[in-house]
Simulated assay, not measured.
Amino acid sequence: MHRGKGMKFVGDSRIPAERKPNIPKDYSEYPGKTEAFWPNFLLREWMVGAVFLVGFLCLTVAHPAPLERMADPTDSGYIPLPDWYFLFLYQLLKYEFASGPYTVIGAVVIPGIAFGALLLAPWLDQGPERRPIRRPIASSIMLLAVASVIFLTWESVDQHDWEAAAQQGAIVDFEVDEESYAFEIWTTQQNCINCHGGDMLGGAAAPAVFESDYSKEEVIDIIKNGAPGMPADQFEGTDEELEILAAFIANDGQDPEDD
């Protein structure tokens, strides 16, 4: 364009004499390799995102989040399991080279190298080709990452004790007979209430007193001698009251005389 051609001089500004519509560039010279970001590419991305969003919403309605019993910080035997998208990292921490004194390797070093390699992939292979076979470095990194995630996720799912996990997290409803004399005895035991709650159904410090199938004699022994995480000699009452309360606990919160 020659200097000044097609221009109107307005002071020190130059304004095009004719306003042209904003027409996307012509990509016909590169068929199948590139396209306009707006609206072609972005519209397609929005449509795919909308389909996945509706799918996730349907899943949340059809399969609500599973709820477990109240968390017990004193339960050292609890089998944890993270969400599915963290299972591969969870499995990595089970191996000797990435656990125990080497936890930093499994939690920071290895994931850092893996994600760092994915971030550097565009700079490691800057060729114009888009076919995976023509981009060996980027394709190899991606395939290795996908294979590792799938393998570690599968190992984590395969090694998890699903039956034990379902039992430990099951919510058990107990109907405590609050009219019973045994429950009246319980309300006078402040040491027990502080951990197991006034309703005997547990709290943040201890589980419900009915969660284990103990006999009357076993309950008495635990109350007198204590248990892991539970001190001994916390009951303040007579031996007769202890037997009544132990029978009440062994009978899952119901008066044995009513059975």
Score class of each variant (00 low, 15 high):
M1P: 03
M1Q: 08
H2K: 15
N22T: 06
K25V: 11
E29V: 12
Y30Q: 12
P31G: 10
G32N: 12
P39W: 07
R44L: 08
E45L: 12
G55P: 05
H63W: 12
M70V: 14
M70E: 14
G77Y: 04
Y78N: 05
Y78T: 06
I79L: 15
L81G: 00
W84I: 05
Y85M: 07
L87S: 00
L93H: 03
L93M: 13
K94N: 13
E96D: 13
A121V: 05
P122H: 02
D125K: 02
E129Q: 09
R130N: 08
R131Q: 11
L143E: 01
V157M: 09
Q159K: 09
H160C: 02
V172E: 04
V172G: 00
F174W: 11
V176W: 05
E178N: 01
E179Q: 07
A182T: 03
F183K: 03
G198P: 07
G198Q: 06
G203D: 07
E211W: 04
E211T: 13
D213G: 12
E217L: 11
V219E: 09
I220P: 00
D221M: 13
I222D: 08
G229C: 13
D233G: 15
E236Q: 15
E241K: 14
L245R: 03
Q254G: 10
P256G: 13
E257H: 14
D258W: 01
